[in-house]
Design a protein around this nucleic acid. Structure first.
Ligand SMILES: [Mn+2]
Ligand SMILES: [Mn+2]
Ligand SMILES: [Zn+2]
Ligand SMILES: [Zn+2]
Lengths: 151, 151
DNA sequence: TTGCTACTTAGAACCATTCCAATTGCTTCA
DNA sequence: TGAAGCAATTGGAATGGTTCTAAGTAGCAA
């Protein structure tokens, strides 16, 4: 039962192993990039950011890795009106607010009781596995600052 | 103030006129098709249905007309996870339930007070112009029958 | 009629994403 | 240690819904 001399595997490595998948530099850097700047980047934006660490990573790999992270429930794919898919490492129940002016996307935490009330509108016979709530409108500057989250 | 000898303009013609647009056979038939079978068809599906009346209508025109109807607030464009846009003539406040099994989309009416509660989760500084609520899961057969809405 | 503009049309272009076939890289285990 | 086997990455082609473009058609005003 002795461990290998390497450091203990991080959350990512553990989740991957749990699904029979390997931890790779590409997967790790992509996940780090998502955690570091939580502004719901597109695959292209992730690609650009990851390239500072892995200059030769391909866009296909970025798509593959993002898909893997979504499968492992470490990341949520977020869509808004046929725009490119965005990626979000916030695992708490939350809604998304799309600022029409700036195109930015903000997390809105949702209390559990609200989700219950929302699901309660479903007539009998409807069994929802997930609910998604999306706002569209205008966010004031200071809200943007607060939501940028780099503090 | 005498009207022309034609019949009074229907809701569609009036809305179009209000926006300085013309009522055309293509726009009318497309809107009729949406009203007749409210199953959230894609542009392709609308195209196929409209062709029974207008065999030579182009897909580009279907897209153009659907866009026009959306602009006039007669139809809502509904998106789900990068799938093709679907079109919905239900103007009441409602959510959408996507049945993963069948791929069908059902309207879920929303009481006004729920929409208020949902919007109330927005922190100060967020001004939402619209809220969208989407469920994903499994709907039982009898629900599907009820929601098909042809009766 | 003539002109003006709105509307429709076929097909090209667009673009995010997926697919494909080839390569590279771990990991076993002889 | 090394061959096999499988996982993962890669560049480029293909996909598919949608939008664009340029040309034609049609209603309307003067
Ligand atoms: Mn993308
Ligand atoms: Mn479509
Ligand atoms: Zn988020
Ligand atoms: Zn609907």
């Amino acid at each position: 039962m002795s461990q290998s001399p390497q450091t203990a595997p991080d959350a990512l490595a553990q989740r991957l192993a749990h699904s029979g998948l390997r931890s790779t530099p590409q997967r790790e850097v992509i996940y780090d990039v998502l955690l570091k700047k939580r502004d719901h980047p597109t695959a292209d934006e992730v690609h650009a950011r990851v390239r500072t660490d892995l200059p030769s990573i391909s866009l296909a790999t970025v798509y593959n890795c993002l898909e893997t992270l979504v499968q492992c429930d470490l990341v949520r794919a977020v869509n808004f009106e046929r725009g490119p898919t965005r990626y979000c490492p916030n695992l708490r129940p939350h809604a998304h607010f799309h600022d029409e002016q700036s195109g930015s996307t903000h997390d809105i935490d949702l209390p559990a009781d609200l989700l219950e009330k929302v699901s309660a509108v479903l007539p009998p016979g409807y069994d929802a596995k997930s609910v998604e709530i999306t706002f569209r409108g205008k966010a004031l500057k200071n809200s943007e600052h607060r939501a940028a989250g780099s503090k």
